[in-house]
Amino acid sequence: MSTIANALQSQVGRKILTGLTGIFLTLFLVAHLSGNLSLFIPDGGESFNLYADFLHSLGPLLWIAEIILVILFLTHAYLGVSIYLKKKRARPENYKYYKSQGGPSKQNFASTSMLISGSIILLFVVLHVMHFKYHLFSPETYMVEGTEMVDLARHVSEAFQNPWIVAAYTFVMVLIGVHLKHGVWSAFISLGAKNPKLTPVLYTVGGIVALLLSLGFLAIPLYIFINGGL
């Protein structure tokens, strides 16, 4: 066990963990998005609310899932920050002129801003959870069979008619795409994609996944905003 603990602190271990947590977070995004897309079922948000209720009905299981999710986020963020700090120590005096060679290089806006995109995502996640889970900003409730409940669908629909919120979401959803443009490919390599001929393909695949996720999440606020509600 101690070897595994050591291994996890090594360069390779850290990176594999980054990749793993990144992939699980990506999978979470996929699941999250599929749930969210139920908003588009034209039943006045019922399916969506049912979906939300279903999750709540899981009780302790949901807690466990949420705790895992928090751990994933924190581990991933911790690793990302530590990789960044290490990089600073590994080259205290920077080049005065520095340029990417291009070609197979994956150095671009996406890959060099991982920490920034990630940090904004983290900040966003906190706000997002406070907003839609704890309803801190718009605690409107209604009664269902004697219990006070939230009409999440309505809440979402109302929130996304506020241009500031939509603008913020658009920004962050694009950032998620940017994070994943490098992230998905990077995770492939972190987790051992070994065929030299496949690497360009993987990069394209990663880009497409990133794009789809980003567009998927964007679709909801933009649709609601343009449509003026669900």
């Binding site: 990789i83 120590r89 080259r91 197979p104 994956k106 390599i189 030299p196």
Partner: peptide, 22 residues
């Protein structure tokens, strides 16, 4: 004291003998 790898693949791009990031 070398840093971690972030899969930038800049190494492959500058490698004079073209060793792949794989």
């Amino acid at each position: 004291g070398f840093g971690d790898c972030s899969n930038f693949a800049e190494c492959e791009a500058v490698c004079p003998v073209g060793i792949s990031i794989t």
